[in-house]
Each structure stands twice: as C-alpha cells, then as structure tokens.
Computed example of a mutant assay.
Amino acid sequence: MPKVKPVILIVEDEFLLRMDSVEVLENGGFEVVPAANADEAIAILSARSDIHLVFTDIQMPGSMDGLKLARFVRDRWPPIKIVATSGHVRAARDELPAGSVFLPKPYLGAELIATLRDLIGIA
C-alpha cells in the first residue's frame, strides 16, 4: 500500500517563489497544491478535504492577506495546520492562530521541510 503524502497548500502571490516552494516541498515528500491568493486558497480548501497544512505568505494582494487567511482557515477548518511567512513583516504570536508557526524569509528549503514535518507530526 503506498504511503499517503501530506498535502500542503501554498499561498504565494509571487509566481517564481510559489513554484520554487512547490519544487522544494515535492522533493521533500509532500503533495503540493499552489494558490496565488487567499480567494484561490479558500476555493481549494472548500473543494478538497485532504489539505493538512496551509503555508501562506503574509503580504498578498486581494480580499485578505495571509494573517486574515490564517484566522479564516482556523475558524472554518480547525484541524488544518498553518505556517505563515514574510520577508517584510514579522508576525507577532498573537496575530496568528494558536499553534501556527511564523517562518521568516529567506528560509532554507531544509528549514521549511523540517518546520512542516514537525507541525504535521511526521519524522
């Protein structure tokens, strides 16, 4: 029986960063679903029940930024883990839902993989 890969939803408005993160995480053993903004992310979350974690940039154009998206995800899909990232702002602990992680940019691919594995609870 094949091992089920954890599914990560990446929400990043910068195309090259999004594609780079997809590649890093796929190479790290995750199934990755990319989204360009919060609206796209919410549509994906509404359509799929297999998302384990949302990895979102904080600063994004559109109806909500990454912090608002994180709170929305926690309210609507409480079991989904959340990792927020930014190279411009730092998220204070009280700005993110409980149990979420902030990972400042730039980060190393290995650091991202280790953070996600730790949060999901896989060795």
Rank of each mutant, 00 (worst) to 15 (best):
D57K: 03
F15D: 13
L53V: 08
S46F: 09
L119P: 14
D57S: 03
R90I: 14
I82Y: 05
E23V: 02
D57A: 00
L25W: 02
M64I: 04
E26G: 09
D75A: 15
I113F: 03
I82S: 06
S46P: 14
A98W: 09
L112F: 05
A98M: 12
L16A: 13
I82R: 03
E12L: 00
A38S: 15
G87S: 04
V11C: 03
D20K: 02
V54W: 01
A91S: 09
H52F: 13
P106G: 09
N27K: 06
E40W: 00
V22W: 06
L116I: 07
I80A: 09
V11I: 03
V4T: 07
N27R: 10
E26A: 02
V101Q: 08
D13E: 12
K81H: 13
G121A: 07
S100C: 14
R90P: 12
P6D: 00
A43E: 15
D57P: 04
T115I: 07
E95M: 14
M60F: 04
I51C: 10
P2I: 03
Q59G: 08
L45G: 05
V4S: 14
A43P: 13
R71F: 12
V11S: 02
E14M: 05
G62D: 07
R18T: 04
D13R: 03
V32N: 07
L9A: 08
A84N: 10
A123V: 05
L112D: 06
G62V: 02
P78G: 03
L112A: 12
A84E: 04
P6W: 00
G99C: 11
I58D: 08
R18Q: 04
L16Q: 11
P104L: 00
A35H: 00
A36D: 11
A84F: 11
V33M: 08
L116S: 10
L96D: 12
D13A: 07
N27Q: 11
P104I: 01
S63M: 13
R117W: 11
I120P: 10
L112S: 02
I113H: 04
T85W: 05
V7I: 07
L96G: 13
M19K: 08
F55L: 06
P2W: 00
S46Y: 09
R93T: 15
F72M: 11
E23D: 13
V24E: 05
V83L: 02
R71A: 14
G29W: 01
D94W: 11
L25E: 12
I58L: 06
F72Q: 14
S63Q: 15
R76H: 14
I44R: 06
L103K: 05
D75W: 09
W77P: 13
L103A: 11
I120H: 07
P61R: 01
Q59K: 14
I8P: 09
T115C: 07
V73A: 06
W77C: 13
I120Q: 00
E95N: 07
P6R: 01
A123W: 08
E40K: 06
Y107R: 00
G109N: 03
I10R: 01
D50A: 01
G121T: 01
K68I: 08
A91D: 05
G99D: 09
F102G: 04
A43H: 13
R117Y: 05
S63H: 15
F72L: 14
K81T: 00
V22H: 05
W77H: 13
E111V: 12
T115L: 01
P79D: 11
V32R: 01
P2F: 05
S46G: 15
A114H: 11
A123D: 15
